[in-house]
């Protein structure tokens, strides 16, 4: 169903590929996107795994805890990004008030107003928002790990760390690969959050590839350039996603 519009859109972009590859602004955007995706996906995978393991244990109120864990994913990005702007504000944001109340900071920090802290704030907001995606997939994956195997190893005297490394992790590989591939695709295509939170600033420090593509199409009315950017970045993301997916899944597993 998507094939026809895709073909129409992308055919226009082929001619612009060379220009996009030589564009200096694109280089900067590509670097920002890589930094953003690399850091946020790494953090999300770690946190998501920890949360999934936690939510897979039995305790009272587990259903509620699961619902809460998914909560951030359930919020519309564009709307929650407005709230994050509010949270990070230099004068009435809680990201300033909390450290000040705890005595960690004297001067208010304009989190979104400096290049390095703006990127950090962006990553924090993204990790919060998308960790549930990883948690949910890994939690579903954990259901396929048979309990008796754990118990058998337990009887053999294996500690929780060894059981995790030898039983859980190998069986979780397909789920990890799935979460990793799709999180990477989403992170490398990040748009809404940046658009609302920083608009790509300050000084282009949070400008990403999809912002370039979007601006080309809608701000500058150069759909061919937008399509070319999508084509180049799409090919790159595809290669990375496949390579990492295969790595995490393990080729022999198929």
């Amino acid at each position: 169903m998507l094939a026809v519009p895709l073909a129409v859109g992308l055919a226009a972009g082929v001619g612009g590929v060379g220009d996009v590859l030589r564009d200096r602004g694109m280089g900067r955007a590509a670097w920002n996107t890589l930094v953003f995706a690399g850091l946020s996906v790494t953090l999300e995978m770690g946190l998501g795994l920890a949360f999934a393991l936690l939510l897979n244990r039995e305790f009272r109120g587990r259903g509620l805890a699961r619902a809460m864990a998914i909560l951030p994913w359930a919020l519309p990005t564009a709307v929650m990004a407005m709230s994050w702007r509010w949270i990070f504000s230099d004068s009435w944001g809680i990201a300033n008030d909390l450290p000040r109340t705890l005595g960690l900071m004297n001067e208010p920090v304009a989190w979104l107003g400096r290049p390095a802290t703006a990127m950090a704030a962006l990553i924090a907001a993204d990790v919060w928002k998308t960790t549930p995606f990883v948690t949910l997939i890994l939690l579903a994956g954990l259901q396929g790990v048979p309990r008796d195997l754990h118990e058998a190893m337990s009887l053999d005297g294996a500690g929780p760390v060894r059981r995790f490394l030898w039983v859980t992790l190998p069986l979780l590989r397909p789920a990890i690969a799935l979460a990793l591939v799709f999180r990477l695709i989403q992170a490398l295509g990040i748009f809404d959050l940046v658009w609302v939170l920083t608009g790509g600033g300050p000084a282009d420090a949070t400008r990403t590839v999809s912002l370039e593509a979007y601006d080309s199409v809608f701000r500058h009315l150069e759909p061919a350039r937008g399509a070319a950017i999508t084509l180049v970045s799409g090919a790159f993301i595809f290669a990375v996603a496949l390579a990492l997916g295969a790595l995490a899944r393990g080729r022999h597993a198929e």
């Binding site: 129409v8 199409v217 759909p223 595809f238």
Partner: peptide, 17 residues
């Protein structure tokens, strides 16, 4: 998988047509 790579914003105009 390749179809997952294209953000809705880029697909918008062709999809609209």
């Amino acid at each position: 998988l390749a179809f997952a790579l294209f953000p809705p914003a880029v697909l918008l105009v062709p999809l609209f047509v």
